[in-house]
């Protein structure tokens, strides 16, 4: 029974990280941009849902989703588009700046103190399944994750825009020469990553029960680990990496003695370090990422 609980935890946490990693990976694949600001998109989603919580549920969902998509597109247009084609380090610094900007803008508007998150309190109720007491949130998040991951896969494999996106991620120049409208494809990637971020906002805010300006940093950092683990530039790798990191962190929680548990993050990033050094291409190697001479 305890083992089953751990497995469920691992899938749930892993799914959250997988969505984070996909959100980062989608943008990286096409722009070679490691988007630090993705965590702040998640944070903004949490605030949007939390502040609209008094409205009827469906309206909250539609409005907050629209807000997040608009925000992601705004970030892309104002900050990242002018820098497109610069070296990855400048892009990384730019996203760092955007992240810092949004975090502190939130401090300016709502203050630094955490606000309570009260949307859909029903999620916190527990239900008993086969002797396990599980919060409803776990089922909702599991359902949302499956829909989201299947949705992203379907969009990328089956729609024209998705296929163009994968082509552009492989080789932007050739894709453009073959008539792919890169701006549209990049906007599409940002919309998808925003939707994924929105789902993370909903689940993560409900989990921690509060909103704070820096709440996006932790999921971002762990999503980062997952993206690198899976191999930067590989989308299946990012999803896989998410689940592997979920499994590892649940395992660390179960195995590590209590006084070492706070060091979990250090262990996770130690792992990143080791992977980068031993296998810089990640678990799944991507041909398009190798440097050509």
């Amino acid at each position: 029974m305890i083992a089953l609980q751990y497995i469920l935890d691992a899938i749930n946490i892993g799914g959250l990280y997988a969505m984070m990693a996909l959100g980062i990976g989608l943008i990286f694949g096409i722009m070679r941009l490691i988007n630090f600001a993705h965590g702040e998109v998640v944070m903004a989603g949490g605030y949007a849902i939390g502040l609209l919580a008094t409205l009827p549920g469906p309206l909250v969902i539609v409005l907050s989703l629209a807000f997040i998509i608009a925000l992601a597109l705004l970030i892309e247009q104002t900050a990242f588009r002018p820098l497109r084609g610069q070296d990855p380090a400048s892009l990384l610094v730019a996203s760092f700046a955007v992240s810092y900007f949004l975090q502190n803008l939130t401090v300016m508007i709502f203050g630094a103190r955490p606000l309570p998150f009260t949307f859909a309190p029903v999620l916190a109720e527990t239900i008993e399944v086969a002797g396990l007491r599980l919060p409803l949130l776990q089922f909702v998040s599991l359902g949302l994750m499956i829909i989201a991951l299947a949705g992203v896969a379907a969009l990328l494999k089956r729609t024209a825009l998705g296929i163009q996106l994968r082509a552009a991620a492989e080789d932007v120049v050739t894709a453009r020469l073959s008539g792919v409208k890169v701006n549209r494809v990049i906007a599409f990637a940002f919309v998808m990553s925003a939707v994924l971020a929105w789902i993370v906002s909903l689940i993560y805010s409900a989990q921690i029960g509060q909103l704070s300006p820096a709440m996006g940093v932790r999921p971002l950092i762990i999503g980062f680990v997952a993206t690198i683990l899976g191999g930067l530039g590989s989308l299946p790798g990012a999803a896989l990496g998410g689940f592997v990191v979920g499994a590892i962190s649940v395992l660390l929680d179960a195995v590590l003695p209590a006084d070492l548990r706070p060091f979990r993050e250090a262990f996770l990033f130690g792992l990143v370090f080791v992977i980068l050094v031993v296998r810089p291409d990640g678990l799944l190697r991507v041909r398009a990422m190798q440097e050509r001479v």
């Binding site: 990384l92 950092i221 690198i228 979990r264 993050e265 990033f269 050094v277 810089p280």
Partner: peptide
């Protein structure tokens, strides 16, 4: 490590030491 991987590696360093 080269390029972006090196920058992420240094970031990992930051997180490890902070933790």
């Amino acid at each position: 490590l080269a390029g972006i991987a090196a920058s992420i590696g240094t970031f990992a360093l930051l997180v490890i030491f902070y933790a």
